[in-house]
């Protein structure tokens, strides 16, 4: 069913939101992802994903206070909803399950 599964990039964005706690807004998320993944992340893509996450009910947003930066425009802060937390946990569990099945030897060869 659409909406319950997380795409790779969606999961990353959702994790970033969770990690940044109260400071998660589009540009910050974009910068953080760029730093951690070492690949160029386009604002437009992040924006689209944030929009989608909100539509799926995995994240919610609220507008912050106006500041002098950003031409007086307010930031939109994102937080993870309960459903978002659940789906993050679910995907972690899934991964852990697989990890526990892999014999240690297989990976040591890398």
């Amino acid at each position: 069913m659409k909406g319950t599964n997380l795409g790779e990039f969606e999961e990353l964005v959702l994790l970033t939101i969770a990690a940044m706690v109260t400071e998660a807004y589009s540009v910050a998320i974009c910068d953080d992802l760029e730093k951690k993944t070492k690949r160029s992340v386009k604002l437009g893509v992040v924006h689209a994903v944030l929009n989608r996450l909100e539509e799926k009910g995995l994240a919610k947003s609220s507008l912050g206070e106006a500041t002098n930066a950003r031409g007086g425009k307010r930031k939109r802060y994102y937080t993870v909803t309960n459903a978002g937390k659940a789906s993050l946990l679910k995907s972690k569990e899934l991964r852990d399950q697989y990890w526990s099945l892999i014999p240690e030897l297989t990976l040591k060869r890398i």
């Binding site: 540009v27 924006h47 507008l63 950003r70 031409g71 425009k73 930031k75």
Partner: peptide, 13 residues
């Protein structure tokens, strides 16, 4: 709109 404009302004600066 507002949020998007803000983002673009931030990038612009």
């Amino acid at each position: 709109l507002e949020d998007l404009q803000g983002d673009l302004n931030e990038y612009y600066d």
